[in-house]
Design a protein around this nucleic acid. Structure first.
Lengths: 340, 340
DNA sequence: ACTGGCACTCACGAGTTGGGAGTGCCAGTC
DNA sequence: GACTGGCACTCCCAACTCGTGAGTGCCAGT
């Protein structure tokens, strides 16, 4: 169990070399590249221990060593300092996001930026409604029996939906419905709205009951059920880099998983405030992603978290760099949201 | 130049076998599988001619023949009848699209359906605004200096955008602006709106000039420039099927091209009314897609075309089946749009 | 115009081999 | 006790060989 200073140093060196070269690393080249001040034989002994402890393994006898998922985990937790971004990267982030015209555009640009900087697949969850609050509701008459319901969230996100009413409705009544809904819901966090919507129906005068009832079901559907649905994705082409050595040959399951929004939301949506979470290989619950790692973090204006973002790549990725990039981008986007 | 009946028959057989087996097809197995009523030697002579004409080629000496892009082209144009869909497929289309709640949902379901039925990458362009007409405009006051502009197109598509006004504005003025805009633009095709918007500003009373001017630039931007921007994509995992034999080894360029919305719009957006267009391999202008084929068609309510959809796959794809599927789905979605 | 026969070509897979990188172990040194 | 040099061993990998078989082109014969 004794992993002394040098053994950890050896592990770090193995991870770094393997990530860089993509080839199993042997004792000799290790000693050459990093200036460990011991002989290859000593390193070999250390490696034997590290292997016994499950941090590295040999693809085959008499080949170099490769980190295991547990090895990466130890590396990420204890052995690496997050690399500060280069000036050039900071500028790139700024330049890329500066011209965004609306929320959609911000998300779009962000996801591309992440993909480009990390050279991995990037995922950004649209600001989730349930964590944000309501800025304004609007009812737009389309015909006498049809309304469009528009909801604007504090984050700038807009949702709309058409509603067929049970019967014709007067313009004044629409105005009244609008007033009531706004009075009741504006400023509330979306997650808290369902009981309020129910109460709203009960408080409605009998004459307006039927349309309000219809509206309430639509409100509930739109605001709650569809509220976390959207995800932006970029950089899938990066999967096809590493010559198919990553992901043990088949991109298929990875690409399939990436098309399931439910999966992506699970991976990138469950973020705790201001924590960067790293999931390495086997730690993933999703079977298909056992050969991949994920770096995810939450973002939002100030200390609030309105969504998640992150990258996905082979377990053999540059964790320190990716963690740094994801954090920096998340923080920058958070600031952007806080301004508007 | 004389390609008699039988030679064409041989070409058709080669394409069909190659698409099915993915292996170069030789004269002997050809005669066995299709009951051409001649000997392998005769077929070989025909093949020699077909090769000379550029319709097939040999991967290496003494291997079977493989169709060239020109061969596929001839096959598609002259030698294949579009396969009618099976009853099961028709039912699948119906079942898949029947529960769609709004336009976004329709597009989403459609693209997944196409990917699933054809086992290729599917692309659906959101109903393009410029080809559709305006149903309604709405202006929603957010604060005294901020409006939200919402546009609803005849296809059900909704676009919205926030506008910062040059100065505070009264509720009555907003109402007036809304009235003016709707009066001028409702019912017009979007492509025809720009001059109308300009005229609108000129007709506006001096007191309302400043906000109307601001609005007009936003209208132009939103309605024209951003009008064809959206694309839905599904089934990228299908690229990784054919064991990397398709696409001569690297998915990278294909995945990259698929991430460029501009490229996809070029491919699937330029559709003539009720024509199914097939682009085979080299016929593609996009360098990266020279190993791929595209089947695209327009769709829309009735005879109108409001967008394109289609599939992308290896040149070695089942053209008759894919053409049939794309057409059927496009028609079904068109009907769906016509109803609403 | 088609066919059967025949010699030829060449990709492919199975087996073989040599080299080299890397290992584990052990005896020796500080 | 911790480290090192030396050494025998393992085994992947790339290169080579070789037999097989599918497929061909050509030609003489019907």
């Amino acid at each position: 169990m004794g992993l002394d200073e040098r053994k950890l140093e050896v592990l770090r060196a193995i991870v770094e070399d393997y990530v860089a070269t993509q080839e199993p690393v042997g004792s000799k080249s290790l000693v050459e590249r990093h200036n460990l001040r011991v002989s290859p034989a000593t390193v070999r002994n250390d490696m034997a221990v590290l292997e016994e402890e499950g941090y590295i393994r040999q693809p085959h006898t008499s080949a170099g060593r490769v980190p295991t998922d547990a090895g990466y985990r130890l590396f990420v937790d204890k052995l690496s300092r997050v690399k500060p971004l280069s000036q050039a990267e900071r500028r790139a982030i700024e330049r890329f996001l500066i011209g965004a015209v609306d929320l959609d555009d911000v998300v779009h640009r962000t996801v591309r930026l992440l993909a480009q900087l990390t050279r991995q697949v990037a995922v950004v969850q649209y600001p989730s409604l349930s964590r944000a609050s309501v800025r304004h509701f609007e009812l737009v008459p389309i015909s006498t029996t049809r309304l469009m319901v528009v909801m604007i969230a504090e984050t700038g996100r807009v949702e709309q939906r058409l509603v067929d009413l049970p019967g014709p409705i007067l313009a004044d009544d629409v105005t009244e419905l609008r007033r009531m809904i706004n009075e009741k819901l504006v400023g509330k966090r979306l997650a808290d709205t369902p009981p309020l919507v129910v109460a709203l129906v009960e408080e409605t005068a009998p004459s307006l009951r039927p349309p309000m009832t219809t509206l309430s079901t639509v409100l509930l559907e739109t605001l709650v059920e569809r509220s976390e649905e959207r995800i932006a994705l970029a950089g899938t082409a990066n999967l096809a880099r590493g010559g198919l050595l990553d992901f043990q040959g088949s991109l298929r399951p990875i690409l399939e998983a990436l098309e399931e929004e439910v999966i992506l939301l699970k991976l990138f949506g469950e973020v705790e405030p201001s924590m960067t979470r790293v999931r390495i290989g086997d730690e993933n619950e999703i079977e298909d992603l056992r050969t991949a790692s994920i770096v995810a973090t939450g973002y939002g204006p100030g200390t609030m978290v309105v969504g998640g973002m992150g990258v996905l790549g082979p377990t053999r990725m540059d964790y320190p760099a990716n963690i740094a990039t994801v954090r920096a981008v998340a923080r920058y986007v958070g600031d952007l949201l806080a301004q508007s």
